[in-house]
């Protein structure tokens, strides 16, 4: 699944110190549930993103465990507090061991 996986993240470029901001994330991924069968009747093995984390300057915003019931192209929306200027780091963990990362900087102003 390493090919074609593409994270998208929406984070404001600027925030006031201590402001709550809305973050949206989306990653292209099939999220193969392990419940489906192929044309010859064999179960297609599960292959999903099983964990997603959002951190700001090393501190956790949210840490999500995903199950196969999360839709294809997993989407999350949540709110984070920005205490100072710094970097958001978003990480998606794939069943196959791959890790996808995206970083966004936020200025204070």
């Amino acid at each position: 699944m390493a090919s074609g996986v593409k994270p998208r993240v929406k984070v404001p470029k600027k925030a006031a110190a201590g402001e709550a901001i809305t973050i949206k994330t989306l990653i292209s991924h099939k999220m193969e549930s392990g419940q489906r069968k192929d044309k010859s009747g064999n179960v297609i093995p599960r292959s999903i993103i099983n964990r997603f984390t959002a951190e700001f300057n090393g501190q956790s915003v949210v840490d999500v465990t995903l199950e196969p019931a999360i839709s294809t192209n997993p989407y999350f929306e949540f709110e984070a507090t920005v205490p100072e200027a710094g970097d958001f780091k978003f990480t998606w963990y794939d069943d196959d061991g791959d890790v996808y990362e995206s970083t966004k900087s936020v200025k204070i102003g």
């Binding site: 593409k6 998208r8 949206k24 989306l26 292209s28 192209n73 989407y75």
Partner: peptide, 12 residues
Amino acid sequence: DFDNPGMIFVDQ
């Protein structure tokens, strides 16, 4: 555009 999953494929 962010909520629209089709935009992932526009990026691709």
